[in-house]
Amino acid sequence: MLVLLPPSEGKASFGRGAPLKTESLSLPGLTPAREAVLGELVGLCAGDEEKAREVLGLSEGLRGEVAKNAELLTAGARPAGEIYTGVLYDALDLASLDAAAKRRAARSLLVFSGLWGAVRINDRIPSYRCSMGVKLPGIGALGAYWRTPMAAVLPEAAGNGLVLDLRSSAYAAAWKPKGEVAGRTASVRVLHAPTRKVVSHFNKATKGRIVRSLLTAGAAPKGPAELVETLRELGYVVEVEPPTGAGKAWMLDVLVDEIH
Rank of each mutant, 00 (worst) to 15 (best):
A170F: 07
Y128Q: 01
V66W: 08
S59G: 15
V190N: 11
R189I: 07
G43R: 14
A91G: 03
R107V: 06
F112R: 09
V228S: 02
S13R: 09
H192D: 14
A118I: 10
A144E: 02
L115D: 02
S113R: 00
N122Y: 00
S113I: 00
K178Y: 01
A141S: 13
L164Q: 13
A101C: 12
G143T: 02
A33G: 14
A101G: 09
L234S: 02
N122C: 04
R107H: 12
L94R: 04
R147A: 03
L73A: 10
G179R: 09
E50N: 13
A141H: 15
G140A: 09
L234C: 03
V228F: 03
C45P: 09
R167M: 03
S213P: 00
L25N: 02
D257V: 12
T244F: 06
G143F: 01
A158K: 00
M150L: 14
D98F: 11
V188A: 01
F202H: 13
L109W: 14
E50W: 09
S127V: 07
A106H: 08
K248D: 10
T230C: 06
P177G: 12
S168K: 01
G64S: 15
L30H: 06
A220I: 04
R16H: 12
I125V: 02
G247I: 08
M1I: 11
R120S: 04
T74R: 14
M132N: 04
P224V: 08
E229V: 12
R232L: 03
H192Y: 07
L162C: 07
V198E: 12
Y171R: 11
E65Q: 14
E241M: 06
V37H: 03
A174W: 02
K178H: 06
D90N: 11
D257E: 15
K178S: 12
G133Q: 05
K197I: 04
I210T: 02
E40V: 04
P149Y: 00
D257M: 10
S213K: 00
F14C: 11
G43D: 11
G218E: 08
A174V: 10
S96C: 01
V188R: 01
E49D: 11
G140R: 06
L215S: 04
Y84C: 08
A91E: 08
L41P: 01
T195Y: 11
V42I: 15
L227S: 03
G138E: 10
L20C: 00
T230L: 02
G183V: 03
V199D: 05
A100G: 11
A12T: 10
R212V: 13
L27K: 04
R104M: 09
D93P: 07
R53S: 14
R53H: 12
